[in-house]
Computed example of a mutant assay.
Amino acid sequence: MSDSEFTVESARTAAEVGDLSTWVARFLASDGSDNAELGEQLSGEYAEWFGPLRLEFDRLHRLAGPPDQPTLERLGDDDLETVEDMQESVDEGWSPPPFVVTWQGDHLVLEDGNHRIEGLRRAGHDSYWCVLGFDDADARAQYDDQHG
């Protein structure tokens, strides 16, 4: 699968055949994400994957972002240049790969997609497609109970 194949549609297809965990690991190992270690970690820790489904950005706990957003880390100058490039690409019609999100107790954590989410936000979007990882069926049921 090439980078151009990591799309919302390819994630949907992987989910339909019960192979979304593999899709996540391969996407995170690809040149576009370049985070094989995270892919292996998430595939091992999260037994159930669901999606893609569209989630509002303000429901996601972001790990990195600009100073005006609630995040754990701030984006540096190089990161902001990447975000600006992504915003321009979105404005020109690019549809980024889905975000990789995990359910951790009682909240959603954006594991992969911090640059993409900011590029989309700057392009005027307030939601996007995500694939969600859950520890097990009970965690998925807890999420479903809270978010219907």
Rank of each mutant, 00 (worst) to 15 (best):
L53C: 13
Q142V: 14
E5C: 04
R121K: 12
H61K: 15
W129R: 01
A141E: 14
R74G: 07
D77H: 13
L110E: 01
E16H: 11
A141Q: 15
T7A: 07
M1Q: 12
E73S: 10
A14I: 01
E9K: 15
D58F: 12
V109W: 10
A141Y: 11
S10K: 01
D78P: 08
L72V: 09
D31T: 08
R116T: 01
S30V: 05
A14N: 04
D112T: 00
D135L: 13
E16T: 08
E45P: 10
D91I: 12
A36W: 12
A123R: 02
D85P: 05
W103I: 05
A47T: 13
D3I: 10
Q69G: 02
H61I: 09
D19M: 13
L38F: 11
R121S: 11
S127V: 06
H61L: 06
T7N: 14
T71Q: 05
Y143Q: 15
V131Q: 04
D19K: 11
M1K: 12
L20W: 00
G113I: 01
T71N: 06
A47S: 14
L55P: 14
E73M: 11
S43M: 14
L132M: 12
L63W: 06
C130R: 03
D3E: 11
L108F: 15
D91Y: 02
D91V: 14
D136V: 10
W49M: 11
A139P: 09
L60F: 01
L108R: 09
H61E: 13
A64M: 10
L120K: 09
V131C: 01
V17N: 06
F6A: 02
D34T: 02
A139C: 03
W129T: 04
A11E: 05
F50K: 07
T22C: 12
D31V: 09
Q69L: 15
S95N: 14
G148Q: 13
S10D: 02
D126M: 04
D91P: 02
Q146F: 08
L110W: 05
L80C: 03
Q41Y: 14
V24I: 05
G113S: 04
L72N: 12
L120Q: 13
L108K: 08
L55G: 10
C130F: 02
V101P: 04
A14R: 03
W103S: 06
R140M: 14
S127A: 15
V101N: 07
R26T: 03
R122Q: 06
E16I: 09
D91K: 15
D145E: 14
W23D: 09
R59E: 15
P67R: 09
G18A: 05
G51Y: 10
D126N: 11
S95V: 13
D126G: 08
G51Q: 08
R12T: 13
P66V: 12
S95F: 04
Q146W: 14
A139E: 08
R12P: 03
W23H: 03
E37P: 03
F57C: 12
D91H: 11
E40C: 07
F99K: 04
E84Y: 06
